[in-house]
């Protein structure tokens, strides 16, 4: 029953990607013993969207040197890869474009390569898909908050992060944000830093943003946290 359910739900998850004939995997010409991420993890995109950057993996041999011609397979529930399987190039790297699934939240992407002596080496990356509410939050954040909260400043969109003291924590700092409750987040955004005994350089937005926008911001901040934010309350095992 459980298997049937899993099959059914995966059928539902992948309405758009039911390819009639999966392309045959290329035959590996070499084997490595270890696989590592070069780039492409921890990206953020809207549900159903391609990640801004491809994921790039590297296969290494026993001597720690890159291995060319090793098979790298990518998989992830609801995620579409192009290509799903590739041979590593001369520098030992394999690249795939990634399109996230239709549900907001975190996606685990596994890149796997068969090892020379049998078995395989794998590495897991995390990517995040934003649903409507988080997208709205990210827009509000881009407009109002990133002027101080973004640690990167460009001439087109200046951020004052480097000049702030104390500087805000980056939203990716899960260790900090996961300890702040929704109620406190709402409090500091609506009533400013002093509401939580923090710096007044964090302004109050309660009279500027609509409640739905603040809710969306919180939803977005939660989605950015690393390690991921867990909703408090009852937890059920898998």
């Amino acid at each position: 029953m459980r298997l049937q359910l899993a099959l059914l739900s995966s059928a539902l998850l992948l309405p758009g990607c039911s390819r009639s004939s999966a392309p045959k995997p290329p035959a590996p010409t070499a084997y490595g013993i270890q696989i590592a991420e070069v780039s492409g993890g921890k990206q953020v995109a809207a549900v159903g969207s391609a990640l801004p950057q491809p994921v790039v993996m590297q296969v290494n041999g026993a001597d720690g040197n890159p291995v060319a011609g090793a098979l790298v397979s990518f998989r992830g529930e609801g995620v579409d890869f192009n290509p799903a399987q590739a041979l590593s190039d001369a520098s030992g790297q394999a690249t795939a474009a990634v399109r996230l699934g239709s549900a907001p939240g975190d996606y685990q992407i596994v890149a796997e390569t068969p090892k020379s002596g049998g078995g395989s080496a794998a590495v897991t990356l995390r990517e995040t898909a934003l649903g409507y509410e988080q997208k709205l939050g990210s827009e509000v954040n881009d407009k109002y908050c990133n002027r101080c909260h973004d640690n990167e400043s460009t001439p087109e969109r200046v951020s004052n992060f480097d000049n702030l003291s104390p500087a805000p924590h980056l939203y990716t700092d899960g260790a900090t944000y996961n300890r702040i409750s929704d109620a406190d987040l709402l409090n500091i955004i609506a009533r400013g830093g002093p509401a939580l005994g923090k710096s007044p350089q964090m302004p109050a937005y309660g009279s500027t943003l609509k409640p739905a926008e603040i809710k969306a911001l919180i939803s977005y901040i939660r989605a950015m946290a690393d390690p991921p934010y867990q909703t408090p309350g009852v937890k059920y095992g898998k």
Partner: peptide, 24 residues
């Protein structure tokens, strides 16, 4: 068929005829 998620914003556009926050 079901609309793939990447086009979902389009459905908002049936009523929201102008710019809509959250539907980039």
């Amino acid at each position: 068929p079901l609309l793939p998620a990447r086009y979902l914003d389009s459905s908002c556009g049936q009523c929201h005829l102008g710019a809509l926050p959250g539907a980039p």
